[in-house]
């Protein structure tokens, strides 16, 4: 009974992570459609991203409830609660990006399409690396720790891409309002890797705490 409940928590967190990863997949498709100019299809994908966020939220709530029932070592309980919040932040951010595109409908000059795509893809890569480190946590905390570090490297790359793109945006001849709008979008897209890094840091923390 005790072990079943603990297994249930891990399964629910894994489910939350998988749903967020799926949501990020749809985010990528939505951005791609937007950049290709297919705004109608992009709207449909926006709804799917929102649905995935809601489902991930439900999985998180279920996991929290099980965790609050006290079936985990207290040393890790708080960390797992924090981790679920951090994963939720990633899902929220994915939703904000598609909403941004849907509501503000920014005009993106085509030369920047590739860099926008790259920022989103690297963000998803960062989250997937975090996902792998979470899966490793169960079997090998040291490997999980090393794997979590890889997220940092990807996040740095995204930072570089973001800075370069924002520099290009502000050196262009666009209106200031347009520049600011595009900068906001770029920053939002960069948040995916930032937040994935925060979640990966929590994995590192759990791995360190596990050492005696």
């Amino acid at each position: 009974m005790l072990f079943k409940k603990k297994g249930k928590v891990q399964k629910l967190i894994q489910e939350q992570i998988n749903l967020v990863a799926q949501g990020l997949g749809f985010l990528k498709e939505a951005v791609e459609l937007y950049l290709e100019g297919d705004k109608e299809e992009c709207e449909l994908k926006t709804r799917v991203v929102e649905q995935m966020e809601t489902k991930a939220d439900e999985a998180k709530r279920e996991a929290e409830k099980t965790l609050y029932e006290g079936m985990y070592l207290p040393l890790f309980r708080e960390d797992f609660l924090d981790l679920m919040e951090l994963i939720d932040d990633v899902a929220d951010e994915a939703e904000r990006i598609v909403d941004f595109l849907s509501i503000e409908n920014p005009e993106i000059p085509s030369p920047w399409n590739e860099k926008m795509r790259e920022i989103v893809e690297k963000g998803i890569l960062a989250f997937n690396l975090f996902r792998e480190s979470f899966m490793l946590l169960r079997e090998d905390t040291q490997k999980a720790f090393s794997h979590a570090y890889k997220v940092k490297e990807v996040e740095k790359e995204v930072d570089r891409l973001q800075d370069g793109l924002n520099r290009e945006i502000f050196q262009s001849n666009l209106q200031l309002a347009h520049k600011i709008q595009l900068r906001d979008l770029v920053i939002r897209m960069g948040f995916i890797s930032d937040l994935s890094e925060n979640a990966a840091d929590k994995i590192s923390m759990i791995s360190i705490k596990r050492r005696i």
Binding site: L2, F3, K6, Q10, Y72, L73, F76, L137, R138, E139, D140, T141, Q142, K143, A144, I206, R210, R211, I212
Partner: peptide, 19 residues
């Protein structure tokens, strides 16, 4: 015991063991 427990890598096994 610390030496032995440190050789256990997985969080799941560690948690079961502690319980």
């Amino acid at each position: 015991l610390g030496y032995l427990v440190n050789r256990i890598r997985g969080l799941a096994v560690f948690t079961h063991l502690m319980r």
